[in-house]
Design a protein around this nucleic acid. Structure first.
Lengths: 339, 339
DNA sequence: TATTAACACGAAACCGTTTTCGTAACAGGT
DNA sequence: ACCTGTTACGAAAACGGTTTCGTGTTAATA
């Protein structure tokens, strides 16, 4: 086992000081050509690479960014990570991923773990429990310490920091309007409770579209599931006790699952019932029929978040100006609506 | 902005030495009750948390593990990450995720970036380019430095390290046998080139099942796609120029995509053609018809990998014994085969 | 020849911990 | 009064770098 070589080793071997080695490897003007060449050759021969940890300690920069997300199995989050990773990597940053699994406690623990020097900044999306609870002290602490934070998708207004969201209201509005234009009158909505910021905005967009088109908002056509887990029974009851000609769902899994249940009832998609879902992920693409979906552009969101965070990390200025970037959703039309 | 407090700050404030503070916070017997209480109270008040980087430097342990995978959008890898994260987190480790995106160069760069002190060990699955190229020097270097590595799923025999795989051959064998038992005679296989270790094993299992059941292995019924990207034309050609009554695919996306194409031809699944795919992911569950799939138990694989890695990291002994854990695949029967 | 500037390098502080070792102060025993 | 043993703490080295500043040597200048 050949152990890693350090500056000290090189210095001893070449009978110069550590400082000289350090400078020589940085090609400093201070060091003579001869010495530099000798040291650089030696370093290359022994494959010297500076120790990241030592450097981090010295300049108080880790070149790591912490990503805390509720779930990695939702395709949307996966694409966001990809976007983050892509941008961060190009800038020489590494990405530490922590999953809160929709739990407040886990979110807090993860953040505390990372906040003690492990990372230069956070990119995160709040767990549903956090949003439900409305307790953001862990975020407050972190920002007060001067650690930059970028919140994406599931955000809160109670924290001053950069934010990236898509215009969820617009997305739902576009989707609902599309359904209305196709002559649908009884459009149902399957969502979570309003505690999830995104669900709330989407519900608003849905209402807005109905109202603008003089359609009644029938509260019994709005199903609020109590968690992110599929509650099959609730959905079946909902379908059994209401008639509808279109369904809008706030996420992909709700959508495909609901479609299956509708199909089991013998109804045809899109003829009898049209479906539009949020998140244009793998499921939307490959579901049968393929899903008309509101694309959230997760990868773009990830890139944007990473860019905003790294800008802040690397900016010298102590400005306390935060911005919220609102990305535009796109409607990807497939076979679950009439073309 | 209240900046982080250090041992030095506490020492100065309380007019004791840094060593005393450090010991007091560790509840050392060396320090008197009074002093300890005073220091601990002060530390708590100012929310002192030791700096991870400093600790890492000191004990040459980062409590980070590096995960290098080809792709995060494949559901299988997502579940593996989840398993890793779960186990690692419980053990106080953080997970740094790097994506090679099936590229050899990226894989090398990522590993080099992390190998300089940022992590205590690697968990990885080889990029297809790496497997194709057969160049594993980056792995060799890392293991020679004494950094523990666990390879999962896409592995190589050229590197001595711990490994976790599922019995891919068995999985394909089980799937093929199932199809044979249902009376299928012309079973096609859609795979990648043999450079991918898993594809190779799966192909072997497929052949083995056919041979054991006295069915001919018709090479024209084996489609080898040249990359992980869907090549629609090749698949259509394949279906047009061959007749078959069952299809086995080496991954989920190949499977659902192929199903779509078969359905477009007007064939019925499973009556005309049965399908079985590898990886029991979201797509399998929600595809229409839902997919009979070989479950790879990604989460289990992730946990096992993390466990093996952390065991090695934390074991004092300098043993050079490596093991390969082989997980058993399971056949999850759904509607793409006859029940 | 004395002064000075440029050159090339080393010493040491620093980042924030942990840990070993040394020691002042005091108590107890003889 | 002397020795010994605790007790309670501090000094300093170490982890592996970066960076500031000081300095010995040489060559150029007055």
């Amino acid at each position: 086992m050949k152990t890693k070589i350090t500056l000290k080793d090189i210095a001893k071997e070449l009978e110069v000081s550590i400082s000289t080695v350090s400078k020589a490897l940085k090609n400093s003007e201070e060091i003579s050509r001869d010495t530099k060449e000798k040291i650089q050759a030696f370093a290359k021969l022994y494959n010297y690479k500076p120790n990241n940890i030592a450097i981090s300690l010295k300049n108080k920069r880790t070149k790591n960014i912490g990503v805390v997300i509720p779930d990695i199995v939702h395709h949307f989050f996966t694409t966001v990570i990809r976007g983050i990773e892509k941008y961060a990597n190009a800038k020489g940053y590494n990405v530490i991923v922590c999953l809160s699994e929709e739990s407040f406690d886990k979110e807090v623990i993860n953040m505390e773990m990372l906040a003690n020097g492990s990372i230069d900044g956070f990119i995160m999306s709040l767990s549903s429990e956090t949003q439900q609870k409305g307790d953001f002290n862990h975020l407050k602490e972190v920002t007060e310490q001067g650690i930059p934070v970028v919140l994406f998708d599931r955000i809160t207004n109670e924290i001053d920091c950069d934010k990236v969201i898509i215009d969820d209201q617009l997305g739902a509005y576009m989707a609902t309007k599309k359904l209305i234009e196709q002559g649908r009158k009884k459009i149902a909505l399957i969502t979570t409770g309003d505690y999830l910021s995104v669900s709330k905005a989407r519900t608003e967009g849905y209402r807005k579209a109905l109202m603008e088109n003089n359609l009644p908002v029938d509260e019994s056509l709005i199903l609020k599931l109590s968690s992110m887990e599929i509650d099959e029974k609730s959905i079946i009851d909902f379908f059994d006790s209401n008639s509808m000609d279109a369904v809008l769902c706030v996420n992909e899994i709700f959508t495909v699952y609901s479609m299956k249940l509708i199909q089991k009832k013998g109804l045809h998609i899109p003829n009898d019932v049209s479906f539009i879902g949020f998140t244009d992920g793998l499921l939307s693409k490959y579901a049968n029929p393929s899903l008309t979906a509101v694309a959230q552009h997760g990868e773009k969101m990830g890139e944007t978040s990473a860019q905003m965070l790294i800008d802040k990390i690397e900016s010298e200025v102590e400005e306390e100006t935060f911005q919220t970037k609102i990305l535009e959703p796109t409607l990807v039309v497939r076979d679950s609506t009439i073309n």
